[in-house]
Design a binder for these strands. Structure first.
Lengths: 328, 328
DNA sequence: CTGAAAGCGCTTACAG
DNA sequence: CTGAAAGCGCTTACAG
């Protein structure tokens, strides 16, 4: 038995419409406004958002679908999106897909049922591929990962360029047998691989890459295997922070040190990469900017639905640390 | 112009009530059910959750209010809560207070406006103190931090015991000038201090504690100051993971190594604590269990609203690593 | 099992 | 500026 707008109206001696106008900052005389505000305080009235959304046909809700909030990239991204939403007086519905297309499909359905205002979305590669066949009732801004060309707004970093920069940096520091370890579920990992591969070839080096599930465990296993077979690489490029962690553990487990035995480098400037040994050389992504930009694109899209889709490409920043130092 | 339940009803040649029953797994003949399901597929109908919530008076929504999702403790907690909610076919509304009581008040208001089913909540100390004067329309389960005695269900760890264990461990390893660095916004930090203090006194050691804002920067400043003044401590206990990070940085900036110059220990078994040097000795919290247990308490409370409030106390686990090793 | 009708709590033209 | 009335899209007694 919560109090509704009618209870407030009765207490204030006005109509429900007037209460609603006070709530929505509509045109109300100062006199009545004061009475209504007093009545709201007296009754402890709180509007029912479901009713408001249903009636007004505005959910004031942003959907955010990512793979796993525990991935620091997405942790920071989500705060950045939430802060922007907070400023715009909107709420955020956060969903974790765990890179599972079934969960993803379920959450996309949920987004429609919530009648969200717009979606910020890091799709798996599987789902991304068919994104042009789907029709959503809300604008979608892709982040971190792209979909079919020119279908949705997107904010990404120059993945190929950044991976190439890492290769160049390593080569310039005397490394040539550079092993690449990439995730197998996102367009981002693919692009990083492409950049790695081109840069290797351009510098006359032989590409030596492997694709695995984007977990620390899978990355650890893959590196352990690679270290045990054939000629040992003298450097490694890893395509995201979680995998880099796995690679680091595997390297240590193999009794190796960086940079002495192996120049370990990768993506994502996570806390620990700065703290271990003399530090790991990484590509730092402007994560908060990615989130903010995505929200900007979303709001612009809402204002001008017919604008051609835009892709904003931000740059990663090479943070050179001890792990890529010249050895011997 | 999205399709509604009436469109489906018309397409299937049945009443809206029947469509609703199919959706809700109500009693419908196999014959009609099939027709309705076909019509749903044909029209691409998606129920409007706002309408459903308004009419059914069930939001099927769990509120989750924490200080900052970027704090790994809360990152993991939120995944654990979301997974449990997912299993129960409920959604989660996540809010970050940044330890700011104003934001907190705003989000508590939001929770009421969403008519949430229940709230999982890590209150700031300011707000926690007055929690017995407030009346919510939904059950509240406190996590990580407690409120007034016997008012709400709660899931915490034995903070005093764990802090005492850390002190004992350090003392047993030859340390006696043990500096304590604690947050100043949560009951949890207070309890950890109390445990630290009692253990120090019990062992005939002199307490030497400081309270600061629970950030890495504040902790770094405090430790830097402490190291520069008076007799240097030979060990440190820090009350959470973020502050421990700040303390670690400050120690390194002062040119000190652990365990050689300082036995640095604290709470939260974060990734990096295992990786730096010979590892940091920490108290690991059963974070996922805390989340799961909180959801269990919430569901039990919903079933039996009049049960006396329960407090579940889980244990932290001492993970002994190199930073507390005996020196010299 | 099925349908017609009422109503959840709001907002918003419409008229004054 | 203000109020009476309609209606957002559902669910749920009620009657059959």
């Amino acid at each position: 038995m919560t109090t509704g707008i009618k209870d407030v109206a009765k207490a204030a001696g006005v109509s429900a419409a007037t209460v609603s106008r006070v709530l929505g900052n509509g045109p109300v005389s100062a006199d009545l406004r004061e009475k209504v505000e007093a009545a709201i305080r007296a009754t402890g009235y709180r509007p029912n958002l479901s009713a408001r959304r249903l009636r007004s046909q505005h959910s004031r809700t942003i959907g955010l679908i990512v793979s796993d909030i525990r991935n620091p990239f997405f942790t920071t991204l989500s705060r950045s999106v939430e802060d922007a939403a907070y400023r715009a007086e909107m709420r955020v519905v956060l969903c974790n897909t765990d890179e599972n297309p079934d969960r993803e499909a379920m959450y996309l359905r949920l987004m429609q049922e919530e009648r969200i205002t717009g979606l910020i979305y890091a799709p798996t590669r599987t789902t991304a591929a068919s994104l042009d066949e789907r029709n959503f009732d809300f604008p979608v801004v892709l982040v971190d990962r792209t979909g079919p060309n020119g279908v949705h707004d997107a904010v990404v970093i120059d993945n190929a360029g950044a991976a190439g920069q890492l290769v160049g940096h390593l080569h310039d520091h005397g490394h040539s047998r550079i092993f690449g370890l990439f995730g197998n579920t996102s367009s981002t990992a693919i692009e990083r691989h492409d950049g790695y591969r081109s840069a290797m070839i351009m510098r006359g080096l032989e590409p030596d890459a492997r694709f695995v599930a984007p977990h620390d465990r899978a990355a650890a296993e893959a590196l352990t295997e690679r270290l045990a077979s054939g000629e040992r690489p003298d450097a490694v490029v890893v395509s995201n922070g979680l995998m880099l962690l796995g690679a680091y553990r595997a390297m240590r487990a193999a009794g190796l040190e960086t940079p002495r035995d192996l120049a370990l480098t990768g993506f994502d400037n996570e806390t620990w990469t700065e703290l271990v040994g003399s530090g790991l050389t990484v590509i730092e992504q402007p994560v908060a900017d990615i989130g903010r930009t995505a929200m900007d694109l979303l709001f612009e899209r809402l204002n001008r639905p017919d604008m051609a889709p835009r892709k904003v490409v931000l740059s990663g920043r090479l943070v050179a640390r001890g792990s890529s130092a010249r050895v011997g």
